[in-house]
Design a protein around this nucleic acid. Structure first.
Lengths: 222, 222
DNA sequence: GATTGTGAAGAGCTTCACAGCT
DNA sequence: AGCTGTGAAGCTCTTCACAATC
């Protein structure tokens, strides 16, 4: 089993995209059980050579003249991304963002199990979110340890985010998904991924403002 | 006013971060009206030389031995990011994600105005979201044209995302913020920024699975 | 002394192009 | 003929290092 493991960060991002295409193939039409690098690339907006490099980076192999086996590639990809084992996660902050994340059907399906929800506001504690009674922050340490949760989701206001993240790290968490518009400073042994709406909006404004002047458009009633 | 405009994509991302630090400075303590590249870099998790390169990329200048003027840098940054003029946006999809985005206090503050909300489900049409009555999709074209909205927010299920994005482009939109876990294929004159929870979770699983075995930890406090 | 601005070196990522396999 | 695998080239981004400036 080749496991050459040198997957760069940009590559990991693209592997997620390929995985989606493969899942659609497995779920929906099983017209063929082969897929080419060109096809995967088209779905993800990436060149075919890039796809082949990415797949080779974790030891996936195709057949020249034929392509890759959908099922085998799917399974290999999940393994490479660390999705072959289930992950247990706790959510801190029972507001809109946390609920929106949990509402994604993929959350459970992909092997992410929510094991507890916490919030600082006593008015929210006790309410149910995604089937879990919201607990006070004072329970966090013990709940994380007891459940063996490896991931923490930070969905609190920006000025609380660092403290919450620190608490999660102290509780022994391995990775943090940060929804607060603030850079977290955490020890190197903890993985951090940020989902930042504010930054996304600003990036959009920036890129839209670079586009050719929208003078002669919205013309034809297309 | 120098405007050397060659801001790379990674640079734009970091500029957003610097902007946040500057805003915090302006809002909160005005202990000093200068800031150094090292200080900005610490907040954003970036080297000081990188900060200086980034700031130089849009013509901002500092004083050797002193630093940058907070107010001037803030204003210059906003201009560089296209945030000096207000943006009008429409939201398609009145579910959790859309509401979570609008709940961000920054949304309105930063100069993004929501002008209309649409949804395909007739059960939702007519309800109020963020102060706007949800409209049926059939109103989209006209509403976008009438309001002059430049941005569209796609917060619908993945299998509807491409159609919705196409409709937005036909209506004359300049940029799309895509929350659906699917790559959109749009003409080059339209900016696209994706916020993808699924990909973020998978990236987190990947990075967390690479971290050193969590054997002997939960020791000294940081 | 502190800090900027920047050329040059370094690192990393993407694209090209084509040999080789089916 | 179709497609993979990959060395090499090309490109972009980051870090280094230091002269110039305040």
């Amino acid at each position: 089993m080749p496991e050459r493991n040198r997957i760069s960060k940009p590559a990991a991002r693209r592997l997620s995209q390929y995985l989606r295409t493969l899942q659609a193939r497995l779920d929906g039409d099983a017209s063929t059980n082969r897929v080419s690098s060109r096809e995967l690339g088209e779905q993800a907006g990436v060149a075919d050579a890039q796809v082949r490099k990415d797949l080779a980076s974790f030891g996936a192999g195709g057949q020249p003249g034929v392509g890759y086996q959908v099922r085998a590639l799917h399974d290999g990809l999940r393994r490479a991304l660390g999705l072959d084992k289930p992950w247990r996660a706790v959510l801190v902050g029972a507001g809109n963002i946390g609920r929106a994340l949990l509402a994604y059907p993929r959350f459970g399906e992909e092997g992410f199990d929510l094991v507890a929800v916490f919030d600082r506001a006593s008015a929210v504690v006790g309410r149910r979110v995604a089937g879990h009674a919201v607990q006070p922050m004072s329970n966090l340490q013990e709940a994380v340890r007891r459940s063996g949760a490896q991931l923490g989701i930070v969905a609190v206001p920006p000025d609380e985010a660092q403290d919450v993240a620190d608490a999660l790290v102290r509780a022994g968490i391995q990775g943090v998904l940060n929804f607060a518009p603030r850079a977290l400073r955490l020890p190197a042994h903890v993985a951090v991924v940020a989902v930042d709406f504010t930054e996304a909006l600003e990036r959009l404004a920036f890129e839209a403002s670079l586009k050719p002047t929208p003078s002669g458009r919205s013309k034809g009633h297309g």
